[in-house]
Design a protein around this nucleic acid. Structure first.
Length: 607
RNA sequence: CGGGGUGUAGCUUAGCCUGGUAGAGCGCCUGGUUUGGGACCAGGAGGUCGCAGGUUCGAAUCCUGUCGCCCCGACCA
């Protein structure tokens, strides 16, 4: 940081670094670049905060960097306050570390390889190094080596650093970049209960962090995959351009992401229907979709059909049974414990079930080779069908009067369907709603997945050895900057919240050639700075229109205008970016009024 | 990686269909007039038309390939 803060100053501020616009570098643009699609991306570029180097690669320009520094500073302060400890890890990782870790296969595609041999000798072979997309594989061996006693636990290490992910599709500026700035933290505890405590401490720190930033982020239950339980939350900034759906009910406070969301569609006291008659096969030539079976002459509604999907999990096929009217939420299959799974091909399906997609079913006795299956997993909602229709595992035939309890070869029931808006909230039974959001943070109780792989153990007071219980946590710093813009802008430009504004006060000097105007401007700037604001003085010799447009564009929260015209009347003007009205202030009171305005803004922002 | 689109000056772009001197606006430089919401006049600099082949007397324009970028799908902070 250009201006180190005195220890204990507390506030996230770059105070004391008043800048003259003419000496700084803020290349604003009147027009948006053609590759920018959403408002925040356009504004990032137009306001001179970033410039693109290549797909998903951006330079943080001086103004943008200041906001990044504000955000990281607040992040640092809140994490430090919660007891976490900052360190810095390498971003070039020996590939062996990843090969040793639990997710090499899943992660390798998104990792950049960094080979030392530039002559192509290693072409086609595994890379020697990879660029770190995250750091579990680095921190866990470190802690294993350095911490062996319960006396040194718990610990929570974090860093704020660049991350590399070779996103298949970089998008929307900083929103999904290949190189981005992230805070990542890793907690190590002696027991599960202690890990839960660490988790909640981080959740609280995140909440303070986003509140201080002035970002409206909500904690949303997230998918935990193989971990189970509700020990993952995503922090979402509601925005139409977000990549994720949040399923929520305002009144009950229930909020979950699409992958995790569930509903109370199946009543807890549901009694399974008795069989309605003998299973009966009937010919359905050419019918291979739910919709076709819904149509005449069969007329079987989707909510009376069993839909059977086939996946390959770690090499073995397994079945998923859903209602015909429901859609699979693939992420929920993560709970089944397969490390890798994918939809099966028709060629893989036929030898096991005896038919091709379109006539598949999970009725006992109809499967050609049931012993090949790793399991049959049914969604709870099929119990609502009771007796229904499904494929006969014979091309061109279906079965009716299929009873869930009597006839289906279900290994295990679970929640596999995608929730739809309007379904009852699991908390209150009220209808669920959906809205888009930008994921800006994630907290996750990891358990012992990594400590096991890397042998991170400690000795307790009974001389017993145990695995450390881990948690991992992330905040997308650069993405958060853009999310704030997405959330806080108007037709003229950005409207920065006080605490993450690159500067908080802009002194706009309309007649910088007038010594008197510059004198007044500098004394106002000093007063604002004294009161704890970062100040930018627009001393450029430009027409007023240009200065006002630029001021609105870069979105500094408080604008003070000093002009020859005003000085003749003995006034300066004070205007908040977020408001329309302009206050004329007599020169004699100006410094005091500015100081008061800054103090008020700081108090409101919790600076 | 699959589908669609696009590449012309620092930025936004016209021209391409129907081959023949590469144009505009913004920005930039010089001079002048202006000066409270992106001014005006005059002059000026700046373009391997993404790259490589091909067709042709002649290619920004047609064909082939290639690369970059953007949009739609699966992944993520």
């Amino acid at each position: 940081m250009p201006c180190a803060l005195p220890p204990g100053s507390g506030a996230a501020s770059l105070a004391g670094c008043m800048k003259l616009w003419s000496q700084f570098f803020i290349p604003t643009l009147k027009e948006s670049p053609s590759d920018a699609e959403i408002a925040s991306h356009k504004l990032l570029v137009r306001a001179g905060l970033v410039r693109k180097l290549g797909g998903g690669l951006y330079t943080y320009m001086p103004l943008g960097l200041r906001t990044i520094q504000k955000i990281t500073q607040i992040c640092r302060e809140e994490l430090d306050a919660s007891g976490a400890i900052e360190l810095w890890m390498p971003h070039v990782h020996p590939v062996e570390l990843w090969q040793q870790g639990p997710r090499w296969n899943a992660a390798r595609e998104i990792m950049f390889r960094a080979d030392s041999a530039g002559d192509g000798k290693r072409a086609g072979r595994e890379p020697e190094f990879v660029l770190g997309p995250t750091h579990e594989e680095v921190i866990t061996p470190l802690v294993k080596a350095e911490i062996t006693s319960y006396r040194d636990l718990p610990k929570n290490f974090y860093q704020i650093a660049t991350k590399f992910r070779n996103e298949i599709r970089p998008r929307y500026g900083l929103m999904r970049a290949r190189e981005f700035i992230m805070m990542d933290a890793y907690s190590f505890d002696t027991t599960d209960d202690a890990a839960v405590k660490s988790y909640h401490a981080m959740k609280a720190a995140y909440e303070r962090f986003f509140r201080r930033l002035g970002a409206h982020a909500i904690a949303v239950e997230a998918d935990t995959g193989v971990m189970g339980g509700s020990f993952s939350h995503e922090f979402m900034v509601p925005a139409e351009v977000g990549d994720d759906d949040v399923i929520y009910n305002e009144a009950s406070g229930y909020a979950a992401n699409r992958e995790k969301a569930t509903s109370a569609l199946v009543p807890a006291d549901l009694a399974d229907a008795a069989p309605a008659g003998a299973v009966e096969e009937f010919a359905t030539p050419g019918v291979v979709t739910i919709a076709a079976l819904e149509a005449a002459p069969y007329s079987v509604p989707g909510d009376r059909q069993f839909k059977t999907l086939v996946f390959i999990g770690d090499g073995k096929p397994f079945l998923v049974v859903l209602r015909g009217c429901d859609e699979l939420e693939e992420a929920k299959l993560g709970a089944l414990g397969f490390t890798l799974f994918r939809p099966a091909t028709p060629e893989e399906i036929e030898p096991v079930l005896g038919a091709r997609p379109g006539s598949l079913g999970a009725v006992k006795g109809t499967l050609r080779n049931p012993s090949a299956l790793a399991g049959v997993f049914a969604d709870h909602a099929i119990r609502l069908i009771g007796n229904g229709t499904t494929g006969a595992n014979r091309d061109g035939f279906h079965l009716r009067n299929v009873n869930v309890v009597r006839d289906l070869a279900v290994t295990k029931f679970g929640d596999f369907r995608r929730v739809r808006p309007g379904e009852p909230d699991p908390k209150s039974g009220q209808p669920l709603q959906v809205r888009r959001g930008i994921e800006v943070g994630h907290i996750f109780k990891l358990g012992t997945k990594y400590s096991e792989k890397f042998g991170a153990v400690f000795t307790d007071d009974q001389k017993q050895s145990h695995l450390m219980v881990m948690g991992c946590y992330g905040i997308g710093v650069s993405r958060t900057m853009q999310a704030v813009i997405e959330q806080s802008h108007d037709a003229d430009g950005i409207i920065w919240p006080w605490n993450c504004a690159p500067f908080q006060v802009l002194v706009c000097v309309l007649d910088p050639q007038l010594p008197e105007a510059m004198d007044v401007a500098k004394s106002l700037a000093a007063a604002a700075e004294q009161a704890g604001a970062d100040v930018l003085v627009d001393d450029r010799v430009e027409r007023p229109g240009i200065k006002f447009k630029d001021a609105d564009l870069i979105g500094i929260p408080l604008r003070l205008t000093v002009g020859g015209k005003g000085l003749k009347e003995g006034v300066i003007e004070l205007k908040w970016r977020a408001q329309k009205d302009v206050a004329k202030i007599p020169l004699a009171e100006a410094a005091a009024r500015v100081a008061a305005a800054v103090a008020e803004a700081r108090a409101k922002a919790g600076a």
